[in-house]
Write a protein that binds this DNA or RNA. Structure first.
Length: 198
DNA sequence: AAGGGCTCCAACCGCCAGCGA
DNA sequence: GTCGCTGGCGGTTGGAGCCCT
């Protein structure tokens, strides 16, 4: 995609794939000044890019300690379970997978896991399939949200999942949290009492 | 070998919430 | 209170590369 630059006084930014040179400029600037005020980053780093584009590039590609590709079975399983619980809240899911970005998880879900689940849904399953529920759960979550805002939702119990799991704390990808989550996920009380997470 | 269809993923877009003036 | 700016998020798109016929 070539930048369109003629006939407009409005600033037109570069679009499309980032070059190695652009990456280097951005990384250098952030190394010195930090990753904050993306508009300033975009201007001061001498990149003809908008702040949003710089932010995205940094978060999804240039950030240190980033893992790319090779999603392990454990990670896949965790993604499936978290998606079952949280729906398409990719940033929350990514927050539980160190080094993974929301974009990567979203892409992985759309290209791998959603198909996997569709295949399983098509084949008749008698067991308690964990992967067949996401759509229903998202609907439940939305319904709970709706109910909580209107004040009429008193069927079952609802949690604020952010509060409950304390998503504010970074780097807590420990067995403790995972175990807590997995225990909850399989707790019959949860299903019996129609508990949903919002 | 070629070309058409498919897959995957980087990047963009639009919306929304938070915050300061 | 409201307005504009900014950052963050999820959905969507476009193109490069792969696969199949």
């Amino acid at each position: 995609m070539a930048p369109k630059n003629e006939g407009s006084a409005k600033k037109v930014f570069n679009k499309g794939a980032w070059t190695a040179e652009e990456d280097q400029k951005l990384a250098q600037y952030i190394e010195i000044h930090g990753a904050k005020k993306w508009k300033t980053v975009a201007i001061k780093s001498d990149l003809n890019r908008c702040g949003k584009s710089c932010r995205l590039r940094w978060l999804n590609y240039l950030r240190p300690n980033i893992k790319r590709g090779n999603i392990s079975d454990e990670e896949e399983d965790l993604i499936l379970r978290l998606h079952k619980l949280l729906g398409n809240r990719w940033s929350l899911i990514a927050g539980r997978l160190p080094g993974r970005t929301d974009n990567e998880i979203k892409n992985y879900w759309n290209s791998h896991l959603s198909k996997k689940i569709n295949r399983k849904e098509k084949t008749p399953v008698t067991s308690t399939s964990q992967e067949t529920a996401p759509a229903k759960n998202v609907a439940t979550i939305e319904a709970e949200k709706e109910a909580s805002t209107t004040g009429s939702g008193d069927e079952g119990v609802s949690f604020d999942v952010n509060e409950f799991f304390d998503f504010s704390s970074e780097g807590t990808y420990g067995l403790e949290w995972v175990n807590k989550f997995l225990e909850l996920d399989e707790d019959p009380w949860i299903t019996e009492n129609n508990v949903t997470f919002v």
